[in-house]
Design a protein around this nucleic acid. Structure first.
Length: 679
DNA sequence: GCCCCCCGGG
């Protein structure tokens, strides 16, 4: 009797527990759906009090609890529960992957996905793939993405629209337009999201034309645009400066009543700005009832790009009057304008404004300030701003380094660069773009070897632009062996015109004309079309090595095959080349046949040659032009005077001196000061 | 569950 009663109580308890567990499970499903952390914690506590956890049959409950915490975004609870799960379920894997992707930890998401595949117990489903693909997309892991694409094909989930759309995003984010296109073409069911992904993807990958084409196809397919569509379409029109198309999208926006969305209206304003239609932009702007900082910044930047600083400033003021606060974008845009003008006083006003708005510690504003001061030739003020930055991020360093170069402080740039490395700040392409020329200017072989070793250690040396910089540095140091070695280290198909031209110029500047020519021929044979810079370098090299016939031959080759690349510089080189060789008449004939207005450099080259070869007649002719083109250049008078003296025409030489006196050249410093005061 | 979310640039 007693035993039976005990059994009954036990049974009752089991039934009750099971019922409670079922109740909890359905509650947890609801928690996951509503993403309510509080309810999840409540149910969690309940399960513990009731003794439902831990028990042998509690795996399903725990898995639901993990999923609920994951969906609420509570990483630590989810992780702990997930790690303690007796048996991981598809649901637990899926929710953990989703959580980490959404929390911006795609690498952790992929790690869990890897564990899931290795466990070989669960296959990813159509709810798992979109997050795994998104993780690849965020990490720009195209190769892994392609593998996962393969998995979706094998498992058949490729036909799920969500999976397909995710793949489109992944390919587009990784810049693989063709990959995206293949998925798109094969898709059986396309939704508005599919079309939007393609449009925005093309737009983000510098293919606004394709973006518009997809939009046209979408319209033909009878699919109506939504907000997302126009938000991608408008920048595409702006990028193409396609005013007509932009206007069409604008009217579409008004028809479809997306007009309520401020972002859409801002995008319309921006489109007109990008098309260079400030009048239309302003019309839309003035009709807007409420405007935010983006609206104002768009207009301000529009005026700046149109060179209309007055209106840019006027709108900055209006913005303040309307009580809209500028943000870092507004300020850095205005600072960039000050830098390019340059306008120091205005820049200082903006600095003050930034301080009042408490934006002076924003890294973008800091960088803008450093750049502005440097471009306004106030390097010291820029350095003061730089000194106050946290120095953890690369960009302010880049700004101060480029500022050094702008202010001809190459040695300081090198010192700062070394400091940057010692502070463990990672340089990027922009850093090297400023720093490498500094090493070239210094032309110090020891420094060159040191930067070279750094570039090898850091792996930057494999980049063609960096190698080119290094070739230039060694050339300027006179170490052409190293220049050539670095050149040889670059794979043949990665050697671009700039790399070739740098090496050619390097040999040229040290008098190795034959080597320059030979490299030039190799370059042409390798299929690279020479440009005007290459031609200048080779002609210059020929001139400095006395290779007259080779230079002439090359010049004629240019006239025949590359006449579109012809510049005044090339004629200057040729006049110099012929002149140095004493072929002055030929040089003068060449000047007469030019299609360009002869520059002072050309007449200067002729005059210089006339001095070497004591040719009075052509010397006088060249000098006459030079006196007209650059009357203040003392050197030209001196050269002519020297020619006269050389041939013994002392009277004429004296006349040149008198002429110089008359225009106030060559006076002692004291005399010039007096002259300036009395004039 | 997937897409778009507008302003600049060292």
């Amino acid at each position: 009797m007693n035993g039976l009663s005990k059994k009954l109580t036990h049974l009752k308890r089991v039934v009750k527990t099971t019922a409670t567990a079922e109740k909890c499970k359905s509650l947890l499903e609801n928690c996951a759906k509503t993403k309510s952390l509080r309810s999840t914690k409540g149910v969690h506590a309940h399960t513990i009090t009731l003794g439902l956890l831990p028990s042998l049959s509690s795996n399903h409950l725990l898995s639901l609890l993990t999923a609920a915490y994951a969906l609420c975004g509570h990483t630590s609870y989810a992780r702990t529960l997930f790690d303690e799960l007796p048996r991981r379920t598809l649901l637990s894997y899926r929710s953990m992957i989703r959580m980490y992707t959404e929390k911006g930890l795609p690498n952790v998401a992929l790690k869990i996905f890897g564990e899931m595949l290795r466990s070989d117990k669960h296959k990813p489903d159509r709810h798992t793939f979109p997050y795994v693909i998104r993780a690849c997309s965020d990490l720009l892991l195209l190769q892994q993405g392609i593998v996962i694409h393969g998995l979706t094909v094998v498992s058949g989930f490729i036909w799920d629209t969500f999976v397909g759309n995710s793949l489109l995003t992944m390919y587009m984010s990784c810049g693989d337009k063709k990959g995206a296109r293949r998925v798109f073409d094969a898709m059986q069911a396309r939704t508005i999201v599919t079309w939007n992904t393609m449009i925005s993807g093309y737009c983000r990958n510098d293919s606004p034309k394709e973006a518009l084409m997809i939009f046209k196809r979408m319209a033909d397919a009878g699919v109506d645009a939504d907000c997302a569509t126009v938000l991608s379409l408008l920048p595409a029109c702006g990028r193409l400066k396609d005013f007509e198309m932009g206007r069409e999208v604008h009217s579409l926006v008004e028809e479809l009543s997306f007009w309520d969305s401020l972002s859409v209206r801002n995008a319309v304003v921006d489109m007109y700005v990008k098309c260079g239609r400030m009048d239309e932009a302003r019309l839309v702007f003035e009709k807007m009832v409420n405007r935010d900082v983006v609206t104002w910044t768009t207009m301000i930047h529009g005026f700046i790009s149109a060179g209309d600083i007055k209106n840019a400033l006027w709108f900055s003021q209006r913005m303040q009057l309307e009580g809209v606060k500028p943000n870092a974008v507004t300020l850095s845009s205005l600072l960039a304008a000050c830098a390019s003008l340059p306008h120091l006083r205005l820049g200082k006003c903006l600095h003050a404004w930034a301080i009042r708005q408490d934006l002076q510690s924003d890294v973008n504003v800091e960088t803008g300030l450093i750049d502005m001061y440097a471009k306004c030739n106030s390097f010291r003020l820029g350095y003061q701003v730089f000194a106050k930055t946290s120095k953890k991020r690369t960009v302010p360093w880049n700004a101060i380094l480029s500022g050094c170069l702008h202010n001809e402080l190459a040695r300081e740039a090198i010192e700062l660069f070394k400091l940057m490395l010692s502070e463990a700040v990672k340089p990027n392409d922009a850093t090297l773009k400023s720093v490498l020329p500094a090493f070239a200017i210094e032309a110090d072989l020891r420094q060159a070897l040191s930067i070279h070793s750094y570039l090898v250690r850091s792996g930057f040396v494999t980049r063609t632009e960096v190698a080119t910089g290094l070739v230039d540095i060694y050339s300027k140091c006179g170490n052409l062996d190293n220049s050539h070695k670095i050149f040889n280290g670059i794979p043949k198909k990665e050697r671009d015109i700039i790399l070739w031209s740098t090496l050619i110029a390097g040999y040229g500047m040290h008098g190795h004309g034959e080597m320059s020519l030979s490299l030039f021929n190799q370059m042409v044979q390798s299929g690279i079309k020479p440009n005007e810079v290459t031609f200048t370098s080779v002609l210059h090299a020929c001139g400095h090595a006395g290779l007259v016939d080779e230079g002439l031959c090359l010049f004629n080759f240019m006239l025949r095959n590359h006449s579109d690349s012809l510049r005044v510089d090339h004629y200057t080189c040729m006049v110099d080349l012929l002149g140095r060789a004493g072929r002055l008449e030929e040089a003068y004939e060449l000047i007469k046949t030019m299609i360009f207005e002869p520059s002072h450099a050309i007449w200067g080259a002729l005059l210089g040659a006339c001095m070497i070869h004591e040719n009075v007649e052509l010397g006088e002719l060249a000098a006459r032009w030079l006196f007209k083109l650059e009357p203040e250049n003392t050197g030209n008078y001196v050269l002519l005077g020297k020619i006269y003296s050389a041939v013994g025409r002392w009277k004429d030489a004296e006349n040149v001196r008198v002429l110089m006196d008359e225009i106030g050249l060559v006076k002692s410093p004291a005399q010039s000061v007096i002259g300036a005061a009395t004039r």
